[in-house]
Write a protein that binds this DNA or RNA. Structure first.
Lengths: 197, 197
DNA sequence: CAACATAGTTGTCACTGGATACATTGCCTG
DNA sequence: CAGGCAATGTATCCAGTGACAACTATGTTG
């Protein structure tokens, strides 16, 4: 292992993704340089080209991975919560935690939609939000509501969480206000049809 | 004073800002090149250095200007609406319209907070949102609520609007869902102290 | 072992942004 | 009104970056 690095890295694609994710988290997508990443890994500057056609492809992969991880966490959160209210609470906690700790990644994930080219990313995005919307769909099934209201409420809840996290990331919302905002959002959206009380 | 002299541009700073705003709107901050802007204006690429120390300074100025314009529109919206509900409605319309039509600018405005350096921008941001929060503060004054609740509700409303616009910009929310979401947000936050329901 | 496919390297080019030395203009003072 | 001087714009150079093409090392297979 201390011998000269083998010609074949063996897992270069993943190594590039890992290091790029670190840089992204620390300094943002704008200052993510392919050359720096390759230098850190210890390969030549053109090595990743085989796996990522260009810089944008690497960013796409990072965004897609981000959606996959976010979706997984949302799914786990929903599955581990018994009631609608608990699920809403768990979703809020998971989403805001993700959004705050990986603010740069989330920005990349969303900024990407405007770029236009990224069918994979878009698919991952809708897939990631499915568990969230399902929570509201199931709640709607228990009550009598206008069709489509679950999607609208769920999307509005998602938008609220995203907005909270965004304002927190950019400093408009102070850190000590964050929990209170999340609490209020959960209170407003988590009562659903069951807890009309 | 603004007479077109062959040598002294006379209004170079504003010309750079104007052209940069166009490029930002069309193609985003990432592909905003000082050289391209100066070429479009017809001066050399180093000319703006007198006014903008570097590229980031130009972006800062654009973001600050964006907050100023957004704040102005919010203020006008509030002043032209008589009741609390109307004001909330007007704020929502103005904010979402701004966020959708100037998505790249808004991204720059928010992304900036993370950059760290920008006291001016931060001041402009809080200033821009003052009219919005004031609307909720006045509503709170009419009702008896816990102190600070107005700020929290207002901030939550702002977060919701920002989230809606963000999801719409990146395609997670389709264009034909946008109005419905805004309507529901207004319904949820615009009833204020009057409708405790 | 020879031919081939795969994985990574080297070299190069175009472009971008920052820095600096220099030129031109117009004001300002003695 | 002449010479200095600051404001303004120009001409160049340098470093970093992404894209691309040609080359080389390694693994695989008949």
């Amino acid at each position: 292992m201390t011998s000269a690095r083998p010609y074949h890295h063996g897992n270069l694609r993943q190594a590039v993704l890992d290091r790029a994710a670190e840089v992204l988290r620390e300094r943002g997508a704008a200052s993510l340089s392919l050359r720096e990443v390759t230098a850190d890994i210890g390969v030549s500057h053109a090595a990743p080209r085989r796996y990522f056609a260009d810089r944008q492809a690497l960013l796409d992969a990072l965004a897609a991975d981000g959606f996959a991880r976010l979706g997984l966490r949302l799914r786990e959160a929903v599955e581990s919560a018994p009631t609608f209210g608990d699920q809403v609470r768990a979703i809020a906690d998971v989403y805001v935690a993700f959004a705050v700790s990986e603010a740069n990644l989330l920005e990349l994930m969303y900024a990407h939609g405007r770029g236009g080219d990224g069918p994979l990313v878009e698919a991952r995005a809708t897939e990631a939000f499915t568990p969230l919307l399902d929570v509201f769909r199931r709640d709607q099934a228990r009550a009598r509501r206008a069709p489509g209201e679950a999607e609208r409420t769920g999307t509005l809840f998602l938008a609220t969480l995203q907005g909270i996290a965004g304002l927190a990331s950019c400093g408009v919302v102070a850190a000590d206000q964050l929990d209170g905002l999340v609490d209020e959002a959960v209170a407003r959206y988590g009562t659903g049809s069951a807890a009309a009380s």
